[in-house]
């Protein structure tokens, strides 16, 4: 298992380096996919099969595909490649690489390099067992076994995270966490987080919907006047139903009901008055791309 971990992590690191150094966007995305798959393997070796599957399905399968869609939609072609080549001079790398190396050193020192305090022993384990309000996991039941710090000839430098150290030495922790356990935790103590995540996804959905709207539809619609854009002949409008399926990226729906994504009417009525709901940055105006005065924000 450890061998697979190291090989996968090497692949991940190498692929990530390639991601950030490519000039062609599609190449970089493909390397990103490779990196994410390698990360999934790492998750698997760490005993998180559900996370590994999600990584592949959602991260590599949806998010990266989203990025691929956008790249293909923008269709920059050789222009962008030359542009990237022009931008990526070796001199550009010096500063960021130096900064990152400094941060790496500091992180390594903080996470790995300090001598550990003596293992805190019972108190830590009892802390863990005090959290009995959580769903009882069979792996958690025994308390005292993980107390003894295990000694082995291949000990890495003692971590400053004694909990971590003692935890992983615990034989129970070597068992992977099954999806069932994850599900029980998710809809048990973390159910509020699930609801919040769904709200977040809803917000993302609505925002992406609104931002991705085509300009033609705005010209036709009478608008609720917006003060600072009064000079444009057509003010901006509330979200109106338009045919956006061609221009809208497909929304992810890991935890959302399917029917919502096909609805063209905005589910929340407050969106009809965008002034109160959405900040200025995301306002739309008809000729935003062509007017000099509209610099300064993506949406306006």
């Amino acid at each position: 298992m450890n061998v697979i971990f190291y090989i996968s992590s090497a692949v991940a690191v190498f692929a990530t380096i390639l991601v950030i150094t490519r000039t062609d966007a599609v190449h970089a995305l493909l390397y990103l996919v490779v990196s994410l798959l390698a990360m999934a393997m790492v998750f698997f070796t760490l005993g998180a099969p559900f996370a590994a599957a999600l990584e592949v399905v959602i991260y590599a399968g949806a998010i990266v595909v989203l990025l691929v869609f956008v790249v293909m939609m923008l269709n920059q072609g050789p222009v962008s490649i030359n542009q990237e080549r022009a931008w990526l001079t070796p001199g550009m790398w010096v500063g960021p690489v130096a900064l990152s190396l400094v941060l790496l050193g500091e992180l390594a020192y903080v996470l790995v390099g300090q001598p550990a305090s003596p293992p805190v022993g019972q108190s830590d384990r009892s802390d863990g067992s005090d959290r009995s309000d959580r769903s009882d996991q069979s792996d958690m039941s025994d308390g005292s076994e993980g107390l003894r710090p295990q000694v082995s000839s291949l000990q890495p430098p003692v971590s400053s995270l004694p909990l971590l150290q003692s935890a992983i030495r615990n034989p129970q922790s070597a068992i992977s966490q099954s999806p069932k356990a994850v599900g029980l935790a998710l809809f048990g103590p973390y159910v509020i987080g699930v609801e919040l995540a769904s709200l977040l996804l809803l917000a993302g959905l609505v925002a992406a919907f609104h931002l991705g709207k085509h300009e033609d539809t705005e010209r036709e619609s009478a608008s609720s006047p917006v003060g600072q854009f009064a000079s444009s002949p057509v003010g901006q409008s509330a979200c109106r139903p338009v045919n956006q399926s061609a221009s809208r990226p497909v929304n992810q729906s890991a935890s959302r009901p399917v029917c919502q994504s096909t609805s063209l009417q905005p589910p929340i009525s407050s969106i009809r008055n965008p002034k109160s709901a959405i900040p200025n940055l995301f306002r739309l105006s008809p000729d935003s791309g062509l007017q000099e005065k509209d610099k300064g924000g993506a949406g306006k």
Binding site: P96, L103, E106, Y109
Partner: peptide, 16 residues
């Protein structure tokens, strides 16, 4: 972004 990274580096440096 570089500013944020630099700030993080400085703070971590102080911690170290």
């Amino acid at each position: 972004a570089a500013g944020i990274a630099l700030g993080a580096a400085i703070i971590l440096g102080i911690v170290v």
